[in-house]
């Protein structure tokens, strides 16, 4: 084991971390918006809204992400004249945007199911109580349903975020130089697969460890009602009453 080489490899690969995180957070952020829309379509009870959302989730969860990336990056090239006409070619020509687009569509399918679970887990009493106070529509959703659903969905959303950090490695196949891309390049230059693998794996583990901790901290912060109340010193004068 060559530690000097591993240190150099670490310094090389750490340069890919910003792009990895950029891709992951960008797609999870954009995907969340789409996912919320899909989840609302699923629970709306309107068939014309429910079916397309169901089909979307089935297709994007049933096909490999790499196929989706290829379909967007290489596949849309087939329609280049049309895309140029619509002014979209500048977007689909860039591997970065194609990767973000594919990852967003993919994570939205998974996240919509997580959000649906969260939204459906909101106790109906809460909704009734809010209605009794005169809330309805968007106000009810914003103040009561959404915060409770968010809290319920957070653990599953955390694992989805980890999955997305892992999934960004596929962007390396369409020339994005994030951690895995740099690792593959380094391996093919040096033929030291094991050392590079250990270093790259370590970087991903550290990233995922930090993300898990942050999610856990947010969970803790959002659930004060589940925590033991702070111990209160018994008042002495109470004994005299």
């Amino acid at each position: 084991m060559d530690f000097a080489f591993m240190r150099d490899a670490f310094l090389t690969l750490i340069g890919g971390v910003p792009l990895t995180l950029n891709l992951a957070f960008m797609s999870v952020g954009l995907g969340a918006v789409l996912a919320l829309l899909l989840a609302l379509m699923r629970i709306s009870g309107v068939r014309v809204l429910d079916w397309p959302a169901q089909a979307y989730v089935f297709v994007f969860r049933g096909t490999p992400l790499l196929v989706q990336i290829f379909l967007i990056y290489y596949g849309l090239g087939q329609f280049r004249p049309a895309l140029q006409e619509w002014g979209l070619w500048a977007f689909f020509r860039e591997p970065y945007w194609c990767a973000v687009f594919a990852l967003t569509l993919n994570t939205a399918a998974y996240a919509s199911e997580i959000m649906r679970g969260g939204l459906q887990s909101v106790p109906y009493n809460q909704v009734e109580a809010a209605r009794a106070c005169g809330m309805s529509g968007f106000l009810l959703f914003r103040r009561v349903v959404f915060p409770i659903a968010l809290r319920q969905a957070l653990p599953a959303y955390g694992s989805e975020l980890i999955l997305m950090v892992k999934a960004t490695s596929l962007a390396s196949i369409i020339t994005m130089m994030e951690v895995t891309g740099l690792a593959a390049k380094l391996i093919s230059q040096t033929f030291r697969a094991v050392e590079v693998f250990i270093v790259a794996g370590l970087i991903y583990l550290i990233l995922n460890f930090i993300i898990t901790r942050i999610i856990m901290a947010i969970e803790w912060w959002l659930s004060p009602h589940l925590r033991r109340p702070p111990a209160v010193e018994p008042r002495l004068e109470a004994a005299h009453v």
Binding site: K166, T180, A184, A193, V194, F197, A200, G201
Partner: peptide, 22 residues
């Protein structure tokens, strides 16, 4: 289980592909 579930599958494939032939 922690390590293998925490790193991208693509890295493992690269490890076996390049490392195996080495």
């Amino acid at each position: 289980t922690t390590v293998l579930r925490g790193i991208p599958d693509l890295l493992v494939i690269y490890l076996f592909y390049f490392g195996g032939s080495a």
